[in-house]
Design a protein around this nucleic acid. Structure first.
Length: 428
RNA sequence: GGAGAGGUGGCUGAGUGGUCGAAAGCGCUCCCCUGCUAAGGGAGUAAGGGUUAAAAGCCCUUCGAGGGUUCGAAUCCCUCCCUCUCCGCCA
């Protein structure tokens, strides 16, 4: 959420910033509502003050044995007036909150103009693209050639957009996850956490998926419903919900491995081949809670932690800064890391690292005690994939493939592979 | 799933209709005293919101959540959630 005070005082400026996203914020309509809110709230509060004062004097009079009948008569209609005003206030406030929860975050000045992902600006390229003296296969052909990637079995069980990994390939994904968690915990200063995969709607409102993007989520029929997490960002960021952190324990860095569940509504035609876009995938996620003064720097640092994973794996990638039209709803500024996939001859997103400023913190009341003011203030949240394990697996298959259809295991994963140095078909 | 107990401020914990945002203790902050340390004395110490350009001041809200009764609710009634103990079941 954007600070309501900022909306009131600088609605025009906010509208201008959001217009860069091609989002229309009707500042005038908002301000009209806001005027109503102010009038009604002042009325409600003064009525309440009146009620409190008379209740108090009735109490006093009674204690002194005086006749309270005239006092009671005097406040007779106060309750009705108050109730009417309170109902009105509730309506106006609900309307305002609806608007506020639907506003995307303000954009950082660094964010370039542009409508969609084609206009994201490349920041850097790392690694040499692999050169093959044969026609490189994509992960689907490689995986099925090895008999380790089985979409048919998956679709019998669950339908489309699922996969079954077998044997060494399943182990390779586990190795990747282990490697990433170990690297982030032992070298980048993150605390590993294990979190729920089913969350309640409040958690999703906190991180910004709700109320706007319910269609992207899987929802249970319980009452109240559970939602399957679309990313570990949701439960991990909500660790700070309704709390006040000490300055001394900041920045807080958390890393979690979780499966992620996305309905992929609205992307029916996209990436239907292979395991690029699945309803369920594994991801290692980085989350930070930081002093607002340091969040810009923290984004660079966090992105660097994700980059370091790709570098250690020897996977060529490029880093882009997302343009106005492609930045996520709640993000102030986002870097995507895109890994090179020889099978597609394209860079594909494997990590997305964002600074949310206080956008999520405001929604979930995540604060820290600023030693300068001594007061609780909203903290800043950041998160980024460090990295998506499913897509990393694809990248390894495609980048480390050999002419004979086998796949060499990247060196940093060998300690996790129990002696397997190469994925090759099981001996007949 | 069954039975019972309970949810109050950073923590422990008192408070069964009015002057209670809430005793007391602990913790924390500041001051005083004490030649270190220990002990002692005093003051302060919740969060959110409104009003304001901002602040001060003033006001409103919050005692698990939501409803209700009442002039007035931490306190009474209803519903729900959570925690603990015992039983059942289970990994």
């Amino acid at each position: 959420m954007i600070d309501a005070k900022l909306l009131r005082n600088s609605a025009g400026e906010v509208a201008k910033n959001l217009a860069r996203r091609n989002f229309t914020f009707d500042a005038d309509a908002y301000l009209v509502l806001e005027e109503q809110r102010k009038a009604v709230q002042v009325a409600v509060e003064s009525l309440r003050a009146e009620r409190n004062a008379s209740a108090k004097s009735i109490g006093k009079a009674k204690a002194q044995g005086e006749d309270v009948e005239p006092l009671l008569a005097a406040v007779k209609d106060l309750g009705d007036r108050l109730e009417g005003a309170e109902n009105k206030l509730q309506l106006v406030q609900a309307e305002l909150i609806d608007i506020e929860l639907g506003l995307p975050n303000l954009l950082h000045d660094d964010v370039p103009d542009g409508c969609d992902e084609t206009e994201n600006r490349e920041v850097l390229k790392w690694g040499d693209l692999p050169e093959f003296d044969f026609e490189p296969l994509d992960h689907v052909d490689l995986g099925s050639g090895l008999a380790m990637l089985d979409f048919e079995a998956a679709s019998r069980i669950s339908g489309s957009r699922f996969s079954v990994l077998r044997g060494p390939l399943a182990r390779l994904q586990r190795a990747l996850i282990q490697f990433m968690l170990d690297t982030h915990t032992s070298e980048h200063g993150y605390e590993e956490v294990y979190v729920p995969y089913l969350v309640q709607s409040d958690a999703l409102v906190g991180t910004g998926q709700l109320p706007k993007f319910e269609a992207d989520l899987f929802k249970t029929t319980d009452d109240p419903p559970f939602f399957l997490i679309p990313t570990a960002e949701v439960p991990v960021t909500n660790l700070a919900r309704d709390s006040i952190l000490d300055a001394g324990e900041m920045p807080m860095r958390y890393v979690a491995h979780t499966p992620c569940f996305r309905s992929e509504a609205g992307s029916y035609g996209r990436d239907t081949r292979g395991m690029i876009r699945q309803h369920q995938f594994e991801k290692v996620e980085l989350v930070q809670f930081v002093d607002p003064a340091t969040s810009d720097a923290a984004l660079e640092e966090l992105t660097g932690h994700a980059e370091s994973i790709l570098e250690r794996l020897g996977l060529p990638y490029r880093k882009v800064i997302l343009c106005c039209g492609d930045v996520g709803f709640g993000s102030h500024k986002t870097y995507d890391l895109e890994v090179w996939l020889p099978g597609q001859q394209a860079y594909r997103e494997i990590s997305s690292c964002s600074n949310y400023l206080d956008f999520q913190a405001r929604r979930m009341r995540a604060r820290w005690r600023n030693p300068d003011s001594g007061k609780p203030e909203l903290l800043h949240t950041l998160n980024g994939s460090g990295v998506a394990a499913g897509r990393a697996l694809i990248a390894i298959l495609e980048n480390y493939q050999q002419a004979d259809g086998t796949v060499v295991v990247p060196e940093v994963l060998l300690p996790y592979m129990g002696g397997i140095e190469k994925l090759e078909p099981a001996a007949a």
